[in-house]
Design a protein around this nucleic acid. Sequence first.
DNA 1: TTGTATGCGTTATCAA
DNA 2: TTGATAACGCATACAA
Lengths: 344, 344
Amino acid sequence: MANINIKDIARLSGVGIATVSRVINQTGSVSDKTKKKVMDVINEYNYIPNNNARNLKLTQSENIALIVKYMSNPFFIKMMDVIEIEMASRGYPLLIQNVDETSDELDTAISESMHSNLCGVIIMGGSFSSYTEAKFKQLGIPCVLLTVSSEGNVDPSLYSSVIIDDEIEAYKATKYLIEMGHKNIGFLYKDVAGLVTPNILRYQGYKRALEESGIPVDDNLISTGIPVNGSGFRAGFLTMKQLMQRNPSMTAVFAFSDVLAIGAAKAALAGGKKIPDDISIIGFDGIEMTEFYNPALDTVYQPATEMALSAVSLLHGMMNGERSQHMVYDSVILKRGSVKKILG
Amino acid sequence: MANINIKDIARLSGVGIATVSRVINQTGSVSDKTKKKVMDVINEYNYIPNNNARNLKLTQSENIALIVKYMSNPFFIKMMDVIEIEMASRGYPLLIQNVDETSDELDTAISESMHSNLCGVIIMGGSFSSYTEAKFKQLGIPCVLLTVSSEGNVDPSLYSSVIIDDEIEAYKATKYLIEMGHKNIGFLYKDVAGLVTPNILRYQGYKRALEESGIPVDDNLISTGIPVNGSGFRAGFLTMKQLMQRNPSMTAVFAFSDVLAIGAAKAALAGGKKIPDDISIIGFDGIEMTEFYNPALDTVYQPATEMALSAVSLLHGMMNGERSQHMVYDSVILKRGSVKKILG
DNA sequence: TTGTATGCGTTATCAA
DNA sequence: TTGATAACGCATACAA
């Protein structure tokens, strides 16, 4: 099992080490005859260059990492999928690194970068609030933030980002509920230790919509994040149950995510309510599952595929020396009938 | 941005290179005083050893790869999550590599292993039928197959596996439907180019249950895999629609996966049928979503967490020289009311 | 307990 | 068009 190396290939094909290297990397010039000879030996022995040695020599690899905060979020899955496929098609292997809720994504990226000699990184999910300019400088490789709202005092040229405007989209969703005649509108979210994650921004949008319409913000209608281990389904279920108990007159709910919305829908149905007759529900993200739920759920659709492709594209641009960019996508409210017009 | 290396640390702390190495790897003996001195410098300069150099030197890394056939399968997500966390807790970074439906997982593993100098690999999903003994030998590192039924003529000592018995569990699920009085039982699956994937085994279990009960196997009740791009939800929706048209008297459906089952449930509901009054549905896998669907769906629950933990444990065992093992877990049918007893 | 020197498998420079 | 050789950053056998 002694791995074959470039020296073996050189010996077996009767050429020098450098020639083999030239053939492999298609650099320099090699006569067609020797090129064929070397290639034959390489194929025969199934030789694959050792990446460690290569990266060590190049002091820069072709490794790209995707740092994901909470990988099992269904909304992220689709993006992961797109990114993985897109990277593979460009010839880059993808190192996917999950980050639990207690760790800092940027720290993980830095550590991973130094460990594995990355040449680029995409960070998906998480909170910008702990990111500092010093950390980005320490990272020192192109970095794209995906779905991480970059409110902060960090020089924006240090990274790229692809987001939607969480505050505005949440505002629009809430406004939609208000226009449909709802006044007692619950807000469902999952607590993440008070960090500035999208949930805070979405909460702010919710609040602004109410205030603009002269509807008082009622703390009772806002879920206290129940600490639940496990997925968001259960969290949505439990918080919705709580919310319904506290607010019998609540007619609509805006859920911070589709996963929460599904859990909430289940809680409503389990409580004998009909959707949308007794209670209207709208989620956020636009995961496919909402389309197949019974009933199909309204949601604020994020163009996940396009956003993921943009992230990849931006990263490659930066790796080729292009400037950083900040893209903000628009969401679309998918209306499927889980929100009903009621009389004022 | 010139990266700091072990030589710099040695120079800055006024010791030799080997001493720094000893401090880092906690090997050999170093006086407490010099150890502290070196550690201080390391911390001050945020030094992280270069893994490429280290792996090159050790001709063996601490990298473990998880090769996943079709990453966005919700059933896999949970396992990925568990594996990632468990590996991280043991200090191993995880390289997750997606494999599309046209590529061979074992080939990918081999290639990835030579490229990145892996010390172990877990393969999740896919089909054993293309695996050969030669390939396992070429791989040359501990390998655990997760949810890959290892029917074949490969020496079982070359790999470990963690599975359920797809044929038997499908048999039991179908038997359950039969016991509940159903005779016109549809079978829903997603075509994967005729490979021996779990769907074939589950189909065989379905067939055997019917035959044993003297119910003729009706090809009309078996979905022809509609080629659908996108997720299984839509595939389930479309195949179910087709199946219902072809078989108005069908009273129950056994879906190859929960994702298909959800799509099928949606199709049934969209067609005006009630679950389980007009049609009974049972899925397979036991993903959390089935619990929160409306109505909650019966499913053949695979102990995903335990299976994932076992896979990690087996892999570590093999990396420490232990023998390979083959574990077969039992499934449990979760009865939630989507299957109704009908009169013969 | 410590430091020096060698080699891991590559790439790239420089002569030939 | 080629081949010998010096790094890349690290671990370790060996000498001190």
